[in-house]
Amino acid sequence: MFYWFLKFVAIGPAVRAVFRPRAEGTENVPATGAAILASNHLSAADWIFMPMSLKRRVTFLAKAEYFTGTGIKGAAQRAFFSAAGQVPIDRSSASAAENAILTGIRTLHEGKILGIYPEGTRSPDGRLFRGKTGVARMALETGAPVIPVAMVYRKKKLPFGKKITRVTVRFGKPLDFSRYEGMSGDRFVERSITDEILYEIMMLSGQEYVDVYGATVKKSMDATGASAPEIVARLQPPPDEASDRAPTSLAG
């Protein structure tokens, strides 16, 4: 109940008034049953704009720190993220990735919509980075369709030189990977599926694709102080090799 209060009373009206988010392709999201919404990740506000575009509730996997705070602030934060459809994940443990995948699979088996960011982190520079294969495993083990999603942010000029951000959320056509049933755990299949999903996100968003993990780039940025483009230039394969490794849509 509190979720709907947040969406339609507390936060929703203010967000719509300021950002005027647009949604395209919402008919591609099933009205019932499990589905994975696989989105690019450009802003900390992505998880607000995406669910506001849909009638159904979207569940996200969030770091456990949001649920363990103390005092009034901790209680308020815990209530907010719980009501907003966030499920806590302990990212500090050695099995964090496996726990996240299993929690996502359980959520999908419950017939819910799961929101996920295959890149695993926000983009360091606005480009689309290499996806992690957890999304493929979830799809293979649950049979849930994957709906590629693109968050598109554009600056609009206002009088007196000011600018405001306009947001568009694009939902692509569902991707069905039932042809790979029983192949969960095959790393080549899971990589191919993940690349297909990233390809569809790239087509929806218009972003440039980078065949490097965003988390790797951020770690190098912290260690060296270099910019994301500088790090990517060092890590990305040469042009000829990179063209061979870019995400491609799988045949039938």
Rank of each mutant, 00 (worst) to 15 (best):
R57C: 03
Y180K: 11
A35M: 10
E27F: 07
D240R: 14
A215I: 10
Q86D: 08
V87T: 12
G126S: 03
R56W: 09
A44D: 12
T32I: 03
S205V: 00
T107E: 04
I147A: 04
P124C: 04
Q77A: 05
A64S: 15
Q236S: 12
T224H: 01
S92L: 05
A246L: 15
L250M: 15
I101Q: 09
G12K: 05
P51A: 02
A223R: 14
V212F: 13
S39C: 02
W4L: 09
G206K: 09
F188H: 14
R137V: 14
S93M: 04
L61E: 06
A34Q: 07
I101E: 06
F188T: 15
A62H: 11
K155D: 13
F81L: 03
L102C: 00
A228P: 08
A136C: 04
L175S: 06
T26L: 10
D90V: 07
I72G: 01
T165Q: 09
S184F: 11
R137D: 10
S192N: 11
Y209S: 11
I164W: 10
T133A: 05
I197V: 04
L250K: 08
I201L: 06
A34K: 08
V169K: 14
K219M: 07
G120T: 01
V135I: 06
I193L: 03
T107V: 05
S220L: 14
A44E: 13
I197T: 01
M52R: 08
R106L: 03
S43W: 07
T68Q: 13
R56I: 08
L175T: 14
R137A: 10
A84G: 11
F60C: 03
I164S: 14
A223P: 13
F8T: 07
K218V: 02
F19G: 02
R179L: 15
A139M: 05
E190F: 11
S53M: 15
F177P: 05
K55W: 10
A96R: 09
K173H: 09
R137H: 14
T168E: 08
G71F: 06
A100E: 00
P247M: 04
Q86C: 10
S243K: 12
E119V: 02
V15C: 08
L42M: 05
P88M: 01
P247D: 04
L114G: 02
V149L: 13
A233E: 06
F171L: 07
R234E: 03
S92G: 12
V29A: 00
L102G: 03
G126Q: 02
R170A: 11
P229E: 00
V152P: 00
T224A: 06
D240F: 12
G126A: 03
R20N: 03
R137C: 10
M1G: 11
A14N: 09
G69K: 00
K132D: 12
G69P: 13
T68W: 09
I164R: 15
V87H: 10
Y153M: 06
D176F: 07
D222F: 11
A35D: 05
